[in-house]
Simulated assay, not measured.
Amino acid sequence: MHMQSSESEPVMKELCSKILTTTDVGVRFSFPTATMREHFKLLEGSHSLDFQVRDKYGEVWTFRLYTRKNDGHPKPVLTKGWPGFVKRMGLKVGDKVIFVVHGNHNGQLGIQVKRNIKLLGYEHWADL
């Protein structure tokens, strides 16, 4: 029997996730190079790209993905927009940020944030 997924069923693919470091929270988010190369196409000669993500509250955030001019090691980072997101969400070192693509929303990028909490002796990643 062949099962078809309904259009209303959310199709979500994780692009990357990262546990936040002191630099991620205080200065800029170091974005995974492999994820950047796979999912973001910078124009020839360009070293930055603005893109939008939607959080779980429906708010849209614009981040700037910036790379060094040396193509061998681009070291992508999120600059513009990232500090405001950190402040608004109250992010701390050790929190997890997950970038996702929502397949049924024309490839809309999403962002999720989670905090590791201990509950009854067990660790859980709770949504923020």
Rank of each mutant, 00 (worst) to 15 (best):
K80I: 11
L119P: 09
H47P: 06
I117Y: 05
V25Q: 02
P32G: 05
K13M: 12
R37I: 10
V101D: 00
K118Q: 11
K41N: 09
S17D: 07
K18Y: 07
G103C: 02
M36P: 03
V11E: 08
G45N: 11
L78K: 03
L91W: 00
V53T: 05
S46L: 13
N104F: 03
L65H: 00
F85V: 00
T33W: 14
V60L: 04
S5T: 10
V77M: 11
L128S: 09
T23F: 11
D24N: 05
V27Y: 13
G121E: 01
Y57E: 09
W61G: 04
E59Y: 11
A126F: 01
L78Q: 01
K96T: 08
M3T: 14
G121T: 03
V100S: 09
G58C: 07
E7F: 13
F51Y: 07
G72Y: 07
M89G: 09
F85L: 02
G84S: 11
G45E: 09
E44N: 13
E38A: 13
S46G: 13
E123K: 09
Q112F: 04
P83Q: 04
G81Y: 00
A126E: 06
P76W: 15
K87R: 11
G107E: 00
G58Q: 06
P76M: 12
K87P: 05
P32M: 07
R54N: 06
H124Y: 03
G84I: 13
K56Q: 09
G58F: 08
M1Q: 10
F40R: 15
K56E: 09
V100P: 10
Y66N: 15
T21H: 04
T23I: 09
Q112M: 09
V25Y: 00
Y122K: 12
I111C: 13
G72Q: 10
H105Y: 13
L78C: 01
P32A: 07
E9R: 09
Y66G: 13
I98R: 01
Y66P: 15
V77L: 06
M12W: 05
E9K: 13
E9H: 11
E44D: 14
R37S: 12
I117F: 05
R115K: 09
R68L: 15
G26F: 14
P76F: 08
R54F: 02
D50M: 06
H2V: 10
K80T: 06
T22E: 14
C16E: 12
T21E: 07
M3E: 11
T67E: 07
Q108E: 04
D55G: 00
D127T: 08
K92G: 02
R68P: 00
H73C: 11
P10S: 02
T35H: 06
P83E: 02
E123V: 14
P74H: 06
L65F: 01
F40I: 12
V86T: 01
M12D: 06
M3R: 12
R37F: 07
R54T: 12
H102D: 01
G58I: 04
F29Y: 01
V100Q: 08
K118I: 15
V60P: 02
V100E: 08
R64E: 03
K56V: 08
K114I: 04
F29M: 01
F29V: 00
K118C: 15
